[in-house]
Simulated assay, not measured.
Amino acid sequence: MKTLKHLLIAAAAPAAIGAFAVPAIAQTAGMAVANPEGAVAQSNAWKTAQSQIQTTYAAQIQQAQTRQQALNNELRPLVEAYQKAASAPGANEASLRTQAQQIQQREQAANQELARLTEPAQRARAYAVEQISAQLQAAVNAAVARKKVTMLVRPEAVIYTAPTNDITADVTAELNRLVPNVSITPPAGWQPGGQQNGQQPAAAAPAPAAPAQQPQGR
């Protein structure tokens, strides 16, 4: 499920730019920033759900990790052989294309295999996130009202703001109040994104780690 930044996988924030003066907008009374994904990730319900999922699906997760390593080991020599052939004088373009296609087909099959292994845990994560997200707007509204905020933006929307303007922790506190825990067992027929049984889910399980280097077409 690709809501909430792919199940709360957050990107690293850029370093602060100290040479810039504080923008006027950031000094406006009632202005605040909040990271919704960060608020959900720090909520007690999500942390508990993550722990439960790691325990409940421990065997499947371990099987997927072991299989992923085996598949990476299988693909690595194929990639190395391709790279060696590509760097050789007078490399044959047709042969290289065939090698690249074989590697890509094997990698796609590996991704599908790993998706099947991780699907139960991924569904549980998506279901937990969906339940917490259902209360996110209410949590934001409550935090905004309590802090008397008149304008709320994401942190990446401003160049600079004082740490005291960040109300992400306040949103998390409201989530903890509104949704102290969630279930990790989706009901029969449930699919991420509210789709009905038989339809494609909103997103597949995350792809496995790719080999160290991928073949590039010439």
Rank of each mutant, 00 (worst) to 15 (best):
A94L: 14
A210C: 05
Q42T: 06
A128M: 15
A49E: 04
S43I: 00
P187N: 04
A138D: 10
E80Y: 06
R125P: 02
V33F: 06
A94S: 15
A145V: 02
A207Y: 10
A143G: 10
V79C: 13
P89Q: 05
M1C: 13
A88K: 13
K147Y: 09
Q105T: 10
A64S: 04
Q83T: 04
A15E: 13
L7I: 10
N111S: 15
Q108I: 12
A86S: 12
W46I: 03
P163R: 00
P89L: 01
E119Y: 01
N165F: 15
A145T: 03
A10Y: 14
V171T: 02
A59P: 09
I167E: 00
A210I: 05
A142V: 08
A139N: 00
A157I: 13
Q105M: 11
Q214Y: 12
A24K: 10
M31L: 06
K5W: 13
A162R: 11
Q54T: 09
A134Q: 03
I61F: 06
A121P: 03
P206G: 03
S95Y: 12
Q101T: 01
A34S: 02
L136H: 05
T164M: 07
N111Y: 14
A128P: 11
V153G: 06
V144T: 05
V179A: 08
P192A: 06
Y57S: 03
Q52H: 10
A29R: 09
A205T: 14
A88V: 10
E93Q: 15
T48V: 15
A85G: 04
P180A: 07
A86H: 04
A100R: 09
P211V: 13
L152P: 12
P208R: 05
P211S: 11
A34I: 00
P192T: 05
A188C: 08
A45S: 00
A16R: 11
A11T: 12
A100N: 11
Q213W: 10
L117A: 07
E107P: 09
A203L: 13
A209W: 01
I103R: 00
L4T: 07
P206A: 08
Y82W: 12
A19W: 08
T56N: 03
A142D: 09
Y127D: 04
A15L: 11
L96D: 11
V40G: 00
A142W: 05
S43L: 00
A16H: 07
V182Q: 03
E174W: 12
A64P: 02
V79P: 08
A64D: 01
V179C: 10
A203Q: 09
P186C: 07
P192C: 02
